[in-house]
């Protein structure tokens, strides 16, 4: 064979390869800081961006997680929420009925415990406190359990947390009905806590004396999941 066996020139290719690989791999360590910086820089732009192109960038956007095999799907007409447990007046409510109740809107950053943050997400729904009060809980209730129609996802809040004004049962996300990927048609939204507390595909609220740990709590995540004050994280509150 020819002299091609002994390539001439500067070994640039290997340096580029090693340099880029070192940069990429070290990102596992510095990436969480860079992600925060990126969301602060690009987040406000993405909100104003009319083209939606910035929305394609991997910053300031939702990642979709689900704990069962496929995305649970339920048409609004078939959706029903049961409110029961230690209550004087257990009841069930349909989608249209829920939308007819007094609504609140919240615009806040959505913060995931794995680090991503979506700036200025608009939610619309009904205060959880209103739905709880309607069932007339008895004096022994200290906690609230939530159940998803995916058959696996559960969550809990203390009664005090559940009564906060920034905890809602949401049916609109950024002005549109909530899609199945985002936990629709109706999900919980717990504004001051990490995303995993905002249970998706809500179908049941149970008022109890003591709460069983929820799905993510059994995986080792904190029960009181205040943003910036739990799970060993120091994020800005939403």
């Amino acid at each position: 064979m020819s002299r091609l066996d002994v390539p001439e020139g500067a070994p640039v290719g290997r340096r580029v390869f090693l340099g880029l690989a070192a940069f990429g791999l070290s990102g596992i360590v510095w990436g969480s800081k860079a992600a925060g910086l990126m969301e602060r820089l690009l987040g406000p732009l993405a909100v104003k961006d009319g083209t939606g192109l910035l929305g394609l960038l991997p910053t300031g956007r939702f990642r979709i997680y689900s704990v069962v095999g496929s995305l649970p799907n339920r048409a609004p007409a078939a959706w029903r929420l049961d409110v029961d447990g230690r209550v004087g007046a257990p009841y069930a409510i349909g989608y249209d009925e829920l939308l007819a109740l007094p609504a609140v809107e919240l615009t806040k950053d959505f913060q995931c415990v794995t680090g991503w943050r979506v700036p200025r997400v608009r939610w619309k729904g009904v205060r959880l406190a209103d739905l709880i009060d309607r069932a007339a809980p008895d004096g022994g209730v200290t906690a609230v359990g939530f159940e998803s129609f995916d058959g696996a996802y559960t969550e809990t809040l203390t009664l005090e947390q559940a009564r906060r004004n920034d905890v809602i049962v949401a049916y609109e996300l950024d002005g549109k009905p909530i899609s199945s990927a985002h936990g629709g048609p109706v999900r919980l939204y717990v504004a001051p806590m990490y995303g995993y507390k905002s249970l998706k595909w809500l179908q049941r609220i149970t008022l109890v004396a003591t709460a069983e740990p929820g799905y993510w709590e059994r995986q080792g995540y904190d029960t009181d999941a205040w943003i910036g004050r739990s799970n060993g994280r120091g994020d800005e509150p939403a």
């Binding site: 990102g27 596992i28 510095w30 990436g31 969480s32 860079a34 992600a35 794995t114 680090g115 991503w116």
Partner: peptide, 8 residues
């Protein structure tokens, strides 16, 4: 690291 790995 999980956050960093997601980002990268």
């Amino acid at each position: 690291w999980r956050t960093g790995a997601t980002f990268v």
